[in-house]
Design a protein around this nucleic acid. Structure first.
Lengths: 349, 349
DNA sequence: GTGAAAGCGCTAACAG
DNA sequence: CTGTTAGCGCTTTCAC
């Protein structure tokens, strides 16, 4: 199979008795090649195991067919959150399907940031970028806006009116979660939020407030504790909220739930009997843990797929007008909310 | 700062009154440039925000400065295991430090495998590859051996005598874990292994056996259950081992511990009182969970760093002789083994 | 439908 | 120490 490693278009052309251009046309599936010729060239290509050199193609066509995934420092600590690997899987798979290569830019340290940002912007490397969303003052976003590289952001960015992004309906998702708790009968409902300098954190808090408001429940500021989407963040936030004795709690990410539940256990509280829990994300682990987690499902892999598709669209057709895609979310009722114990749940239409 | 996007070496050369070659020399930090000239060129480069085109550089120098990380389908389900993201961080960071770009090749489906393998081998894309280890019959390894791309493998591969790899001392690590349990006083010690068609799984099982053997404890085959390094794998393996009433158990990865502990809880067993546990990896979560996990620490990030360094060495200096790096491991004693309750632990010299 | 020729922007001998 | 020159292997007009 994989025979001569260093063939060029020229060689294939000679071997099939045509010109370089024709071979190029065949490889790129362009029209204007007669069927017999196409066949002949294809045969030679298969027999030789030829692959065109990508650097040369990039240089000539001004397209590398590489897209970059940028994970800024501010979400680095979240890399153990299964959310990111899951999203990455969706992105990687869609890259493959579209014959693009995925470059991964992880910013570990501030030093990385200095070295990496200029490199990313080098011409001839990536055709476009997918950036994980962060707070507004992130250096990365500034650079993206100034640069001329097509990009798309996961999650609505804060001060980037012209940016394209893909997001889920965080507000409505959180609203669903809290309304569900209210329907079951809880009234003293707390929340552990995401970082409130991100739109994701803010929107989910808004949804929480909206659900309470809709049911004429006044919210107690002491029952709102800011988390940071990490497991240990969830743990400490839970400790902070516990003295105020919520009977139920909406936690803005499943990964934080893991930490929070540990805090509950250490304080002798069992879920859902002593405290009901609804999360957000629906990670694979959420259905397997015990008690299984009632949560808001967001379509993580499809989100990754859409990010790639949107980016490719922008690369091909320009960044204007900005693309905005919002995925819906879905309430998944399991054990941790206590619905099955407390009442016969009858839908919440 | 980021001004004109489409400058070329030629432009910089003209602007600083020298030839293209000289600018190239300055950029690549080659000798044979007088200090004044270097200064002048550097000034122009900074003022213009010039970055050389990477595709052109790749083509001319036959080096892309991109290295690929290949995660085969057989470890895809492990992508939620924090081990992989951690390793990826180490790899990414070291790539940055060495001015290389990291390309991520995730094989989700069999289809991906067909599309991706040929693409990876295209000339002009990657300078070399880091492959996560898998079982011997993985298509990927076959392809790597046949191809002419430099590569290095994480974990000793099975039937690849000439391959370079970076690994930890799995056998001795497992040995440490089990010897520790024996020292504390347990005698009916079980193990949940990794996949036994991988060297990692096999070596850790060997270490378990060796420790028992050394203490003249005959091993009970019913206390050895094969896992697959996943959380749910740990769960089911634990269910399978429980009827045979081990008083302690060595679990070949911390991530599997998470599943196993859930199985213990559901069966009314508490750790370490009813069953002692020692894991392997020492993930960030291992010290935070409750009870905190006694485990074998392996230096995951340094491992990633060494992988990159080894690969770059191979790229520069050839793949012969094969490089083999084995990292040591370390027993980290926490709560889950019950050492502190059972006895005053006095080291195990 | 096919081929010839002109680059893409850089590196790397080779002169000088 | 610096400049000239010849490619790297492909895409892409433009003729025919």
């Amino acid at each position: 199979m994989g025979l001569n490693p260093k063939l060029t278009l020229e060689d294939i052309a000679r071997m099939s008795g045509v010109s370089r251009s024709t071979v190029s046309r065949v490889i790129n599936q362009q029209p204007n090649v007669s069927e017999p010729v196409r066949q002949r060239v294809m045969d030679v290509i298969h027999q030789t195991g030829f692959h065109p050199n990508l650097a040369a193609r990039s240089l000539a066509s001004q397209r590398s067919y590489i897209i970059g995934l940028v994970i800024p420092r501010s979400v680095q600590n979240l890399f153990s959150d299964p959310y990111i690997p899951l999203l990455t899987q969706g992105i990687a798979q869609t890259c493959n399907q579209n014959n693009h290569t995925l470059a991964l830019f992880l910013f570990n340290t501030e030093e990385d940031e200095y070295k990496l940002l200029p490199r990313i912007r080098r011409p001839g490397l990536v055709d476009g970028l997918i950036a994980l969303s962060t707070h507004a003052d992130d250096e990365l976003l500034t650079q993206l806006r100034q640069g001329d590289i097509p990009y798309v952001i996961t999650g609505r960015p804060m001060n980037l009116p012209d940016a394209s992004y893909v997001d889920v309906d965080n507000l409505y998702g959180a609203f669903l979660a809290v309304r569900h708790l209210i329907h079951i009968g809880y009234r003293h409902i707390g929340t552990i939020t995401g970082p409130l300098k991100t739109t994701t954190g803010m929107d989910r808090l808004e949804g929480y407030k909206k659900a309470l408001f809709e049911s004429f429940i006044e919210y107690d500021p002491r029952l709102i504790v800011e988390g940071d989407f990490t497991q240990s963040g969830g743990y400490y936030a839970a400790l902070k909220i516990l003295p105020h004795q919520p009977d139920a709690i909406f936690i803005a990410s499943d990964y934080m739930v893991l930490g929070a539940i540990q805090a509950f256990q250490e304080n002798g509280l069992t879920v859902p009997d002593d405290i009901a829990v609804v999360g957000f994300d629906d990670l694979p682990i959420s259905s397997q843990m015990s008690p299984s987690l009632t949560t808001i499902r967001q379509p993580i892999r499809p989100l990754g797929a859409k990010l790639v598709e949107t980016l490719l669209d922008i690369i091909d057709n320009g960044s204007q007008p900005p693309r905005r895609v919002i995925f819906g979310t879905e309430l998944v009722i399991r054990e941790s909310c206590g619905a099955h114990q407390k009442m016969v749940f009858q839908g919440d239409g």
